[in-house]
Computed example of a mutant assay.
Amino acid sequence: MSLLQIRNISKAFGGVKAVQNVSFSLQAGELLALIGPNGAGKSTTFNMVGGQLAPDNGAVLLNGQSITGLPPRTIWRCGVGRTFQIAQTFASLTVAENVQMALLSADRKIFSWWPRAANHRRTEALALLEQVGMTPQADRPCSALAYGDVKRVELAMALAPAPQLLLMDEPTAGMAPGERVALMQLARRIARERQMGVLFTEHSMDVVFGQADRVAVLVRGQLLAEGTPQQIRADERVQQAYLGTGLVLEKQK
């Protein structure tokens, strides 16, 4: 059984059909990139998986159990972590305290955090930071970090509830090319180690074709193609869809 199954989900806003009968699946330990030109329905599809939007019809299944239309907090507790296009961290707290806040949330103690965050499961927080290479900066405030390091902290926070599935919304936005590749290589390594599925949206084709195991392409709210990076790069329909927006699917060297 697939870790994540998307079955014929659709979403309309008034008379605009943003997503139409989209289906795909994701296996444990796999990275699946969801791509498409602007307005293709990527964000709408992504937000239906994460609970920010409820589909008009269709189903979202996690390990065979429906999470369709559940609120984001409930989906988080079902084993789904998430990072955002603009990193969501507490700038005034230290790196370790940010991860400890995520652990408090995972333990359902978020409303009684003060002044306990600095003491709550610090050993576990440091272990998560070690996974993302941020232990040396554990006691620095997030406000003092470079943006690439903030993204690593956010990744550690998303791993706090030991998710089965990680959703990454434009994870490399605003990052330099080297940082982009390093972050997604890190996500791929952690996914393999934990047997955690990763669904991510991304505009950087070097990240998509260099790091994803499979790629799903949306155009005008419909699934145009799905396959390995090599298959997608060679697909004439995908080439036409991207060339029509001025984007080129370059071959990795």
Rank of each mutant, 00 (worst) to 15 (best):
K109A: 10
Q231W: 09
V238C: 09
E179K: 13
R121C: 08
F24H: 01
Q164H: 05
D56P: 07
F90M: 11
G39A: 11
F90Q: 06
M101W: 04
R214H: 14
Q185A: 12
K151I: 03
T201G: 00
R108F: 12
L145F: 04
V248S: 14
M205F: 11
T68D: 03
N8G: 11
R116K: 14
I35F: 05
V181D: 13
G41F: 06
L129R: 05
G15M: 05
L243H: 13
D149L: 08
I6S: 02
Q230A: 15
E154S: 04
P37L: 14
E193P: 01
S2W: 02
R220F: 14
S2P: 14
G50P: 01
L159N: 08
V208R: 04
T45S: 07
P71A: 14
R121P: 01
L62S: 01
Q252F: 08
R108Y: 11
T172Q: 05
L62E: 02
G58H: 07
V219G: 01
G221T: 08
R7A: 03
A125W: 07
V153Y: 03
L62P: 01
T123W: 01
G39F: 13
L104E: 05
S43L: 04
G174F: 13
Q164D: 09
A191L: 10
M101G: 02
G197T: 10
G81A: 12
G15A: 12
E202I: 06
P71R: 14
A160M: 03
V80Q: 07
W113T: 08
E154C: 07
G36P: 00
T94N: 11
R180N: 06
Q231R: 13
E170W: 00
T94S: 15
Y242E: 03
E124V: 09
V19A: 08
Q211G: 00
L126W: 05
T245A: 15
A118I: 02
K151M: 03
A146L: 12
Q231H: 11
